[in-house]
Design a protein around this nucleic acid. Structure first.
Lengths: 360, 360
DNA sequence: ATGCTCAAGGTAACCGGTGTCATAAATCGC
DNA sequence: GCGATTTATGACACCGGTTACCTTGAGCAT
């Protein structure tokens, strides 16, 4: 594997025998040892069909022996495109970010592509020009856009303009499906609703995320529609809009628990707000789940650290990230990109101890 | 800023007037328009002192007008080194990871360097060879090594061997200080001890992280030494070794709360284990902080989501990341690298509601 | 005036790959 | 059996920068 010294032995032009020993082998080394031109080596690397089987085998043998790996910079320079995938995001939740990164990295593993991360502030006046500079400079191979960056049409337009492939992750299709991974958050909302209905709850409340976010909107829609389908209504006062934050969850929770009749169950748009509701319940002297059931969304680690452990809808963030990145690097390989099985990334309910039968 | 069309106007060799319009300007474009050789442009870019002030100004004017930015790939190819910083880590805590990333990115902002992240499994048999392949392939400019990757001497040796700069982050100096950022975790442990002592606690317990981690060892040492200095002893049974996980915190917490006399305060090596202790206390029917004070370490978001909100030692992870990356890209600029002020990254106690006076 | 030094800048090769096009060898049609 | 394709390969320029080395001219000592 580390027999690189062979290169030195092989070349004898004007350089002392010993020098240039431990240097990574280049395409020239391979070409010389395989007795072909560098162009042919390049063909082998890029799997061109116009190489005789015998030649290919010989070149590959040398490549393997020297442990040659093409230099991504040189390749990128000639290709006019790097082998870097960008992840541009503004989701403030650390666990979301890490899960998504992990999924992308899983897909990239062994592919030769690397991940560059880029947290952004979408409201920054320089956002778009910064993105343009970033993507153009790095000549990104493609970018993954999780929500809510994925919902920024200006950014999508910019990427189209500078011809940078991207995959958007969102609750609903935002454009032709090829460049999207859809998370179907409304089904998660529905799952939460069914769970609460099954436990006999009638007075139910919901705290959504900011409705400017598709995810917030979809989770709420799924929840409300499932309730309505079961003939359970939710008066306006029982549906609040939070900010996806702990603090907003606590504030909305306090407001909801002051209503009469008091809701016996609250579904929140994410786990952060659910933890806020748990605090509010505690301050109001309510027991969970005896007096109040709480259901969150995300199923992040915190869900099991809370008291009581949180019933929540699992969002398969890592899988989604993996699929998105996979799309990007497979490209339009075989006809259309391999379609993913939507079932594999549908949200589903995880029942813990924060939910139970409606109080009598 | 987007006056790139000028390049087309400037060149009139064998190409139709309109073509090659919206292409990023290259060093050749700058050279032509500034009427100098590309080498001189290169000198200006790299701030060579051997350029006449007048020439420099002229070149810079053209650069600004065209919004020229050198291509990192081409530059890297010639430099034999990329402008990519690697972060190699195995810390499983999402918040730690994100905070560290944020710090590094802050330092890199506007510098032209980009961050590549690399979660690893240090026990993987291919760990070292993977790292070697990764670093060599990408020709990384440098890497940041947070704990516990930073404590892997094999990795440090490998990086030395392949001549890749690195900065290690750890609780104690592991080598000559230039390539280290020291977090002085023992001072955090001491701060926790002083807090509990001030509240009159006498029967105190500690759950450390795995002692193979320096951080766990140092936090424990700081804590124990401060207690000892105050004449408060901790019998062996009151000092347990956890795994930095929620589950281990819960298990150790149950064990400690079964001791007689029961500890009135527990200090844990991180917030995760503290959340486990809170669960254990709840199961044991104890009130926090009335019956039991709990102090954690890290001050991650979860600390304020728990009930009661957790008193904990703040670890300035983001700042540490920033300083580490700063070191890397400043290099040995002016004589020795700019020294950081250790005070700026010392851990400190954040008092919330999980700690209080010892029960009478 | 001559020679030397040094600032200022240019030339050409090179970093490690790929694109384009030409060419040699192999296959095919009839 | 010979031109026309097709297959397989090489030569060479190029991607966008940098390094190594050379040239020029001004300033200064001799």
């Amino acid at each position: 594997m580390t027999v690189i010294s062979k290169t030195a032995a092989g070349s004898a032009e004007g350089s002392t025998e010993i020098e240039r020993d431990r240097r990574r082998p280049t395409i020239n080394d391979i070409a010389r040892l395989a007795a072909v031109s560098k162009k042919t080596v390049s063909r082998v690397i890029n799997e061109s069909p116009f190489v005789k089987e015998e030649t290919r085998a010989r070149v590959n043998a040398v490549i393997d022996e020297l442990g040659y790996v093409p230099d991504p910079q040189a390749r990128g320079l000639a290709f006019r495109r790097s082998f870097l995938i960008g992840m541009i995001y503004d989701n403030p939740n650390p666990q979301y970010v890490v899960n998504m990164q992990q999924g992308i990295l899983d897909a990239l593993k062994g592919s030769g592509y690397e991940l560059i991360i880029r947290p952004v502030v979408r409201s920054d006046p320089n956002f778009l020009s910064d993105m343009r500079a970033f993507v153009e400079r790095q000549k990104l191979f493609g970018v993954v856009l999780p929500p809510s960056v994925s919902e920024d049409e200006r950014l999508a337009a910019l990427l189209n303009e500078i011809d940078c492939p991207y995959v958007r992750i969102a609750s609903v299709p935002l454009d032709e499906a090829e460049s999207m991974v859809v998370t179907h958050d409304h089904m998660g909302g529905a799952a939460a609703a069914k769970h609460l209905l099954a436990h006999g709850h009638k007075v139910i409340a919901h705290i959504s995320g900011p409705l400017t976010f598709r995810s917030a909107h979809e989770r709420r829609r799924g929840f409300c529609e499932a309730l309505a389908a079961a003939g359970v209504g939710m008066p306006d006062a029982y549906v609040m809009e939070g900010a996806y934050t702990f603090e907003s969850g606590m504030a909305c929770g306090e407001a909801l628990l002051a209503l009469s009749p008091r809701p016996t169950a609250i579904f929140t748009g994410n786990d952060e707000m659910a933890s806020g509701v748990l605090q509010a319940a505690r301050k109001a002297g309510l027991r969970v789940p005896e007096d109040l059931s709480v259901v969150g969304f995300d199923d992040f680690q915190i869900a099991s650290r809370l008291w009581p452990p949180l019933t929540t809808v699992h969002a398969p963030t890592t899988d989604v990230g993996r699929i998105a990145a996979d799309r990007l690097i497979r490209g339009e390989d075989d006809g259309r990109a391999r379609r993913y099985d939507p079932d594999s990334i549908l949200p589903y309910l995880v029942v813990r101890e924060s939910s139970g039968p409606a109080p009598a």
